[in-house]
């Protein structure tokens, strides 16, 4: 690519506003967090904290009472379950919306993509109401069908709370996949369908050997970005469950995913002495995991952070 030849001064002047800003608000917080992770800084020791090397990391990764692996495990489970649901629901809706026999396609399109347009923070709070035990419409519908003693403890039972936040996340995110898949489907030339029919391919074979391979290149980056966004999901889940329900004081809550766990250990109502150093170690470890995932993802096809930012904008 051709470049412009300019004086060194000019280059510095053009770069300066951005680099100065980034040094203060991007780089410094990261470096400071890195530093904190090697100290025993906590609310009680804020006047006389000291360097303790990798002790925080040892405690995080190698001590038996560490919550790190349970929290990481339930976060990964959440990611896998959510992303599989996105793929299935997104694929089915995209196939349906790509079917020329459907009457009133523009109508269905708008309706099925509507969750994407709704501001996710607000819809999370709406969903919380829908799940409410006494006055929430889901249990009201259940009572209508199965009698007055019916009641599903949506947000009170650990497994159901997990399922609830999966449902909400699917509602929020499937339209993104619908749009991505629909775009890829519309790029498939009609002759392929004709050729497959002449060759005697059944519908499943057509889907498996024609549609799927042609849609995959678009799906891979979308899936990776979506997995990364879900991994660091905070807003939606926190607004609905605050990471709960908590069954035992010693264990993290059933929907306490990595970001929520970190947040609750610093700002949680029951935390008297936030251990900033330890949480910083937790944050740095997460960053390493995220950076590795992003790096792998970018190798697999997602070249720029733009699409992830779009997801963040919706998340």
């Amino acid at each position: 690519m051709p470049m412009l030849r300019v004086k060194r001064r000019t280059i510095v002047a053009f770069l300066l506003p951005m680099l100065a800003m980034m040094a203060v608000i991007n780089l410094w917080p990261i470096l400071y967090t890195l530093y904190l992770s090697t100290t025993n800084y906590s609310e009680f020791t804020s006047d006389n904290y000291r360097f303790i090397g990798l002790e925080n990391y040892r405690q995080l990764l190698f001590s038996f009472d560490s919550d790190f692996f349970p929290v990481l495990w339930q976060t990964l489970l959440y990611v896998v379950v959510c992303v599989s649901c996105f793929l299935v629901v997104g694929m089915l809706t995209a196939l349906a919306l790509n079917n020329p026999r459907v009457k009133g396609l523009p109508f269905w399109r708008v309706v099925l993509l509507l969750p994407w347009a709704a501001p996710s923070g607000i819809t999370a709070l709406i969903w919380k109401f829908l799940f409410q035990y006494d006055f929430g419409p889901f249990n009201q519908i259940g009572r209508l069908l199965f009698g007055p003693q019916f009641g599903i403890p949506w947000l009170l039972n650990p497994t159901l709370a997990f399922i609830s936040v999966v449902i909400v996340n699917v509602w929020l995110s499937y339209p993104f996949f619908t749009v991505v898949i629909l775009g890829a489907l519309q790029g498939i030339p009609g002759e392929l369908r004709e050729a497959a029919r002449i060759d005697g391919a059944g519908p499943w074979q057509y889907f498996r050997h024609v549609t799927l391979p042609l849609v995959t290149p678009a799906l891979v980056p979308a899936t990776i970005l979506s997995a990364i966004t879900t991994f660091q999901m905070f807003n939606t889940v926190f607004l609905i469950t605050q990471g709960g329900p908590v069954v035992s004081a010693l264990k993290p809550g059933a929907t306490e995913f990595v970001m929520i766990y970190m947040y609750n250990r610093i700002l949680g109502a029951t935390v008297a002495n936030p251990h900033y150093g330890f949480i910083a170690a937790f944050a740095i470890t997460l960053f390493v995991i995220l950076a590795a995932l992003t790096y792998l993802g970018s190798g697999l096809g997602a070249r720029s952070p733009r699409a992830s930012s779009i997801r963040e904008a919706r998340a």
């Binding site: 410094w28 400071y32 947040y263 949480i279 910083a280 997460l286 950076a291 952070p305």
Partner: peptide, 17 residues
């Protein structure tokens, strides 16, 4: 790399800043 760093991770640092 910075894009991969969620601001939430630097909670404490932001608070002190």
């Amino acid at each position: 790399a910075l894009q991969a760093f969620p601001g939430l991770l630097a909670l404490t640092a932001y608070y002190l800043l």
